[in-house]
Simulated assay, not measured.
Amino acid sequence: MQIAAKTREPARINAVALQAYARIVDAWALSLKEAAGLADMSESTWKRAKKPDFAGELTKDQLLRLSAVIGIYKSLELYFSEPLARRWFTRRNAGPLFGGSRPLDTAIEGGLPQILAVRTYLDALRGGA
């Protein structure tokens, strides 16, 4: 029985991560293309992945991306009030990390390293570091 439980664990983690990510995508009003790009999936895969019965597996990179995006969302919700918390990621930003682009666009273009940099940036703002 324990082996069966361990083999279900990654599927459960994937399902929880995808459910949380889908809620964030809705909260930020991301397009299909933006949501798929941020998660490093094709648009057709993202369409399938956001359904509750999705049985596919996420790569380690995809799971790390989703985890970091969840952290970004949490930081924004704690640091900013509405509606800025929901719009910050999709608004142009003059900060050195973004160069006038939207954090979303830099995250899609820069992949996991940039997503993690955005999360670290927000954690530093929130923590006062």
Rank of each mutant, 00 (worst) to 15 (best):
M1L: 10
A4W: 13
A5R: 13
A5I: 10
K6N: 01
K6S: 11
T7H: 15
T7A: 14
R8H: 09
R8G: 05
A11Y: 15
R12I: 11
A15P: 08
V16S: 11
V16L: 14
A17E: 07
L18C: 05
L18P: 04
Q19W: 12
A20H: 10
Y21E: 02
A22I: 05
R23E: 15
V25R: 04
D26S: 10
D26T: 09
A27D: 13
S31K: 03
S31M: 07
K33W: 10
E34T: 06
A35T: 12
A35W: 08
G37A: 04
L38R: 05
L38E: 03
D40M: 00
M41P: 02
M41F: 00
S42M: 05
S44Y: 02
S44G: 10
S44F: 07
T45P: 08
W46D: 07
K47Q: 10
A49M: 09
K51F: 14
A55I: 12
A55T: 15
L58D: 04
D61H: 06
Q62H: 01
L63K: 13
L63Q: 14
L64N: 07
L64W: 06
S67P: 02
S67L: 09
A68S: 10
V69T: 07
V69G: 06
V69R: 01
Y73E: 04
Y73I: 01
Y73S: 00
K74H: 14
K74W: 04
S75W: 03
L76R: 05
L76G: 02
E77Q: 13
E77S: 10
A85E: 06
A85I: 01
R86A: 13
R87G: 04
W88C: 00
W88D: 01
F89V: 00
F89N: 01
R91C: 13
R91G: 00
R92Q: 11
R92V: 07
N93A: 05
N93K: 11
A94Y: 13
G95P: 00
G99E: 15
G100Q: 09
P103M: 06
T106I: 12
T106F: 03
T106S: 13
T106E: 15
L112D: 00
Q114K: 15
Q114G: 03
I115V: 10
A117N: 06
A117V: 02
R119M: 05
R119L: 13
T120K: 12
L122D: 02
A124H: 04
R126H: 09
R126V: 03
G127A: 08
A129D: 10
